[in-house]
Nucleic acid binder design. Sequence first.
DNA 1: CAGCCGTGGAT
DNA 2: TATCCAAGGCT
Length: 373
Amino acid sequence: MKETSKSPPDLKPSDELSAMRRALLAWYDDGGRTLPWRVRPEDRAKGITPDPYAVWLSEIMLQQTTVPHATPYWRKFLARFPTVTDLAQADRDEVLAMWAGLGYYARARNLHKCAGVVADDHDGVFPLTETALLKLPGIGAYTAATIAAICHDEATTIVDGNVERVISRIFMVQTPLPKGKSDLRALAAALSDPTLDGFERPGDYGQAVMDLGATVCTPRSPTCGLCPWSGDCAAKAAGVQTDYPKKTPKKKLPVRHGAAFVLRSGDAVLLHRRPDTGLLGGMMGFPGTEWGPKPKDDVIRAAEPTPRNWEQSAVEVRHVFTHFELRLSVFHSEIAAELRGEATGDVAIWAPLDRIKDYALPTVMTKVLKAAH
DNA sequence: CAGCCGTGGAT
DNA sequence: TATCCAAGGCT
């Protein structure tokens, strides 16, 4: 025993950790979920390995996003871009348009950038080591560890929200998130320690822990009766499962106000391209005011794309972002085709309504369009 | 390193 | 209606 080791409190003995791993893999082999990007254990045993490009695509889409929401996007992307080279050669605008509705649009910008790096610097072949993956844009600690484990069974330590919840309950970690992340990582690493005892399936193990968190060890009402680690869980023993993970309380969202202008001409509407960085970066939107703490009529008038008689929609658009709630007044007007002016430049675009899906309209702007009805 | 960055579903 | 939060990354 190394007394100099700074291992977290209450780490279990190594033979119990090994037993837990075997129990989890048995549970996974028995009832593992079928996901379209996943190679099932029995196929894995035959030597079938997943397409790293398809796995990468799924992992980027699944960041802070539910499986049901991401899955149709994953199918659509894989059909349109069968290889990473196909994705790299696409226009970024098309990628952003296909991503519209998924949120966290920096992911889409980095996705396209990453495809370019893989195509240019790696001959279109995805790197497979955790270290190499970590250098790519949009790939952080979680995604690098997961792709490396799933695609070639590198014995990485995977820590996502599911793992944090499961581990925090097993060991009753007291330090609230996000500060407690380092403790949780250390405990997760101990459980997936490759030097311990026959850890030959890191990919299946990682997917199994995440499945456990997603389907059994859920945030609100965990079904501990189905859990292979039920007997190893300190929180279960104490009957305090849902008290974990401890988290620091969140602040209430501030409200911001603004106005948007929907200018229609025949079958087209006027769109503006948003700046490349920041909120909804690179996406399209309707011209309008800045979004500030208070609604101001003079600011609204100054933001009109062209002086007209604007009709105000009866209902304002309400939309919740990650760090504020937005309330948008919507104004709309119709203009003759001759008066459209120069609006086919890089920033302003007349978009035909019957092809609006080809434009990178985020959900909030889709709500604005509907409100202008 | 704490704040920024979307959306939709469940409770 | 209010709250949480989902296979996080970047700055």
